[in-house]
Amino acid sequence: MLKDHAKLMYAIEATGEITGRKKLQKIIYIAKKLSFPFQERFQFHFYGPYSEELTLRVEELSNLGFVEEIREKKGGYFQYRYSLTDSGKEFLSLNEVEMPCLPDCLLDMNEQNARFLELVSTVLYFENLSREEVAEKVFTLKSKQKYTLEEISDAYSYIESLKEKAKSLV
């Protein structure tokens, strides 16, 4: 029952707390691309890979009282913080989730900022393209973010380090 919900709860518990909807979306997307078995379907939206299913699932978890969603005003918009509640922890303890190598990758991603994770997820989205084509996509589709070639290169290195981390822990 609610196996896919339990996987998300496991991810939130592993990080302790995730700040920002965008960050949550990108972390789960990147984890999925690292072959962790998240079932949520992602599509490219105006600001990168996004999953409506993930949004709704987190909303369900919040309505069920398993995940606490704290809304805070930040500048001109609202930001959300997510953590697992006690009843969420109890539910999770009764539902086995086996992704032993996930927490280490998640903790690492959670230390990155949302802007960088947006770039990493975009690079992963276009992984079938050459580096030059990816850079062109980033500059065209994310022109407002003003990413540099150096940042794109950092994104590639970061993806490699995450892959190593995921592999070494298997």
Partner: peptide, 13 residues
């Protein structure tokens, strides 16, 4: 299916 969302944090326009 999805609902209309105001699109905070600029995720969906």
């Amino acid at each position: 299916y999805d609902f209309y969302r105001p699109g905070e944090e600029e995720e969906r326009l």
